[in-house]
Amino acid sequence: MLRLRIIISCLVVGLTLNAASGRSNWVIDPKKTRISFAVDATGWPKTKGVFHDFEGNISVDFEKPKQSRVMFKVRTGSVDVGSDLLASLIRSSAFFNSEQHSEAVFVSTGIEKTSAKTVHITGNMTLLGVTHSESFDVFVDAGLADKGRLGYKATGSFERSKYGMVTGIPVIADVVDLEITTEQYEQAN
């Protein structure tokens, strides 16, 4: 999901910088990527977590951004919330059910430029075997463009109940906030 935003960012930069035309492959730098989420709960501090195991493919068409494609996979079992016990609960059938649904996947279906430095990306997110359309806003940091890299910050949220993840609602919020910060570089063909 977050990766999608990253992809969108690439598009924005491409549009902003009038990058070379044609389709480009942008690779996520995992060392510079952080895929995080936050969930609120009544009488409990906001639970923040990250995923350590993920992958993404980005194909950006700067001339026709609508033809650009982004695909991200997150291994839900790699969730890290600062507590092994809490992570075990989140991986259990009460939430991610990582044993049966090991991956959450986002595949973009549309990308729209919203300003010189932002894009809006829409795509299909699959979680717990259920697919729904989600959208994210991406801010593109072109400060690293001279080094052939692009920085992104993608934010969005989704309602977990749509995917059948209803445990704890309403004590634990239905809405899950997502944030992805990343750097990407263009892969040589």
């Binding site: 501090p45 906001k46 639970t47 919330v81 600062g82 507590s83 809490l86």
Partner: peptide
């Protein structure tokens, strides 16, 4: 305790 993870561990 304000950190969710540590708070959870202490509750358990």
């Amino acid at each position: 305790v304000k950190a969710s993870g540590l708070k959870f561990d202490l509750y358990q």
